[in-house]
Computed example of a mutant assay.
Amino acid sequence: MRQAMSVSSQAQTIPRTMAAMQLTGHGGVDKLVYREDVATPRPGPGEVLVRVTATAKNNTDRKAREGLYPTKEKGDVTSFQIGGAPTLTFPRIQGADVAGRVVAVGEGVDANRIGERGLLDFNLYPDERRDLNLAPDYYGHGADGGFAEYVAVPSAQFHCVDNPALADAQLASMGMCSYQTALHMLTSAKVKAGEHILVSGASGGVGSALIQLCRILGAIPYALSQPDKAQALRELGAAAVLDRSDMAGFTDRVRELTGGKPIDAVMDLLGGEMTDHFIDSMIFDMPQRSSYPRLSIAGASSGNESEIMWTRIYLYQVQIFGVSHGTREEAEQLIEWIRDGQLKPVLHAAFKLSELHQAEDYFVNRSSNFLGKIVIVPDAQWSEHGAPFALPVSA
């Protein structure tokens, strides 16, 4: 039995040790080690201690584990280090999109927060600016995250969401890693109501968030995905779904869907050779446009290098926006939309924390019917928060 420790301003005793999945180095899933004797964190000044009930899995977990964030040398095995120095040290507990309950508070935090259910703004902000985030890092990379039973985070970034219509696993699936990235892609490109927006990688976490956010902003989203996901994406809000497995005649198909109008802005999560097709969809009739073509990029699942003629960029005045994380203001706006029920969870399935290896394999080798987020639930919380969303036995 775990020993309990006393934490100031708490409603219950907290165990001295906890279960957690630790990343022990760059490499395969064998670098993820499940332990039940990890020291439970204590909340520092201005922090809350959260008992984790669910944490969404993101593609960045895999990319960080495999060291797939090179910014200069192609063959580098490296972590996300935009601040100038690596912050991923081992062992590290990954998991950015954390939902749970406050069980203790640190100095300076109102004890009335104990018992609150909330969702974490996953950013490790470099400063206090609310509208700018120039050196982003995140929980699960530069600090321990939610693939554990407990996590200590800033009180101001753990936002109360008490909407009873949302289960904890559903709340985690709406985490900031996907939704804030999606919103920042749209705000960077200054997307406005009535515009035609192409969303690539539409069935993933960021893509499905983009479709919903376009509708909130009044824009018209067109999804690029597999045909067997078309119905679900249309139900989510896509005006139409284009088949990503058949890019021949892509621009002609866009013309048909938009009534002959070019795409106003592309939200690109694919990269690779797809990027040139996306530019084509925006520039085929420049005099008809009312704004510059805009390309927001926040992923490269189809390839980290795109071959593009620069004359196509500067002669057609294509504006390109690189997006990783968003801002405090955007996070707070998303929380309001979640509380109001304007954003809907797109949850695919839940896995036990001890089965994270299987979840990683399923995520990488997922079948064509995969849509939405995978959520990881601590074993101790499984019966209440995970089991209702487990994969069918035949999956």
Rank of each mutant, 00 (worst) to 15 (best):
205 G>S: 14
334 L>K: 07
183 L>V: 02
327 T>E: 10
188 S>G: 05
128 E>L: 04
333 Q>D: 01
72 K>S: 08
112 N>K: 14
167 A>L: 01
366 R>K: 14
13 T>D: 14
310 W>V: 10
29 V>C: 05
8 S>L: 15
213 L>F: 10
3 Q>C: 10
208 S>D: 11
341 G>A: 08
152 A>P: 09
153 V>A: 10
128 E>W: 02
28 G>F: 03
76 D>I: 01
190 K>D: 15
20 A>Y: 07
358 Q>G: 02
282 M>K: 00
310 W>I: 14
226 Q>F: 13
122 F>D: 02
295 L>T: 08
178 S>C: 13
242 L>W: 05
19 A>R: 15
142 G>A: 14
109 V>C: 03
248 A>W: 00
45 P>V: 08
321 F>Q: 09
6 S>P: 02
394 S>E: 11
322 G>F: 14
201 G>A: 13
354 S>V: 09
30 D>N: 14
42 R>I: 03
368 S>A: 14
91 P>M: 08
363 F>E: 02
13 T>S: 14
22 Q>M: 13
189 A>I: 11
47 E>I: 12
206 V>C: 06
101 R>H: 13
121 D>R: 00
237 G>P: 02
362 Y>L: 03
177 C>W: 04
98 V>R: 00
171 L>R: 05
14 I>M: 12
360 E>S: 02
6 S>V: 13
168 D>Q: 08
252 D>N: 09
275 T>H: 05
316 Y>P: 07
48 V>T: 12
312 R>S: 07
374 I>D: 06
60 T>A: 13
311 T>E: 09
13 T>A: 15
344 K>A: 07
57 K>I: 11
